[in-house]
Simulated scan of single mutants.
Amino acid sequence: MDINKPVGALTVQELLDILQPVISNQNPIHPEKTENVKHLVYGLKGLAELLHCSIATANRIKQEGCLDKAISQVGRKIVIDADLALKLMKSSRKAYLRAKR
């Protein structure tokens, strides 16, 4: 292969031959590294989107306190652990239905 050949003049095979060592040295993404990543939502709008409800309803749910373990708030900044919030909503819903019987 001519080293002075312009990149635009390379054939597909020549380009693959050049890139093959680079491609083969790349490490695949390990799924176990992404397992510990938390899914976070921000603000009442994020909570409303997570719960598929209005912002007013999301605010009322937040004020009830059933999601306190999932919510971190400093001043006006609200950060919510989405997975924990959904788990808490599910368990509080079951408790609500049991108490209603």
Rank of each mutant, 00 (worst) to 15 (best):
residue 79 V to W: 01
residue 1 M to N: 07
residue 48 A to G: 00
residue 40 L to H: 06
residue 6 P to I: 03
residue 82 A to C: 13
residue 28 P to Y: 01
residue 94 K to F: 08
residue 38 K to Q: 14
residue 12 V to D: 02
residue 20 Q to C: 12
residue 7 V to A: 06
residue 48 A to P: 05
residue 93 R to G: 07
residue 11 T to F: 03
residue 27 N to F: 05
residue 59 N to G: 08
residue 44 L to S: 08
residue 56 A to W: 12
residue 54 S to N: 12
residue 92 S to N: 11
residue 74 V to R: 07
residue 63 Q to W: 12
residue 77 K to V: 07
residue 78 I to E: 03
residue 24 S to G: 00
residue 76 R to V: 10
residue 80 I to Q: 02
residue 15 L to K: 04
residue 73 Q to A: 09
residue 33 K to M: 14
residue 94 K to L: 10
residue 29 I to L: 11
residue 7 V to D: 05
residue 5 K to N: 03
residue 22 V to E: 14
residue 69 K to L: 15
residue 21 P to M: 11
residue 62 K to T: 04
residue 58 A to Q: 02
residue 51 L to N: 01
residue 26 Q to N: 12
residue 26 Q to G: 05
residue 81 D to S: 13
residue 12 V to K: 10
residue 44 L to Y: 08
residue 94 K to E: 12
residue 73 Q to H: 08
residue 31 P to Y: 00
residue 84 L to N: 06
residue 79 V to P: 05
residue 12 V to I: 10
residue 31 P to G: 00
residue 50 L to V: 00
residue 56 A to S: 14
residue 21 P to A: 09
residue 9 A to L: 02
residue 65 G to H: 01
residue 15 L to V: 15
residue 82 A to F: 04
residue 92 S to C: 13
residue 35 E to L: 15
residue 36 N to I: 04
residue 32 E to R: 06
residue 95 A to P: 06
residue 92 S to G: 06
residue 74 V to S: 15
residue 36 N to F: 07
residue 67 L to Y: 09
residue 95 A to E: 13
residue 22 V to N: 07
residue 78 I to Q: 10
residue 79 V to D: 07
residue 47 L to A: 01
residue 37 V to F: 15
residue 61 I to Y: 02
residue 20 Q to S: 14
residue 15 L to H: 02
residue 43 G to S: 09
residue 52 H to K: 06
residue 89 M to S: 03
residue 27 N to H: 05
residue 7 V to T: 06
residue 64 E to L: 12
residue 5 K to E: 08
residue 99 A to V: 05
residue 29 I to Y: 03
residue 36 N to L: 13
residue 5 K to S: 09
residue 96 Y to M: 10
residue 97 L to F: 09
residue 55 I to G: 13
residue 76 R to Q: 13
residue 87 K to W: 11
residue 42 Y to R: 04
residue 26 Q to A: 14
residue 18 I to M: 08
residue 84 L to E: 14
residue 101 R to S: 11
residue 67 L to D: 10
residue 39 H to G: 05
residue 16 L to S: 12
residue 52 H to F: 00
residue 19 L to T: 09
residue 22 V to G: 05
residue 96 Y to E: 11
residue 35 E to K: 11
residue 83 D to I: 12
residue 10 L to W: 01
residue 61 I to F: 01
residue 1 M to T: 11
residue 82 A to Y: 05
residue 45 K to N: 04
residue 45 K to R: 11
residue 75 G to R: 04
residue 6 P to H: 06
residue 75 G to S: 08
residue 8 G to P: 01
residue 9 A to M: 07
residue 89 M to D: 00
residue 59 N to R: 14
residue 58 A to W: 01
residue 99 A to N: 15
residue 68 D to V: 03
residue 26 Q to H: 06
residue 2 D to C: 00
residue 20 Q to N: 09
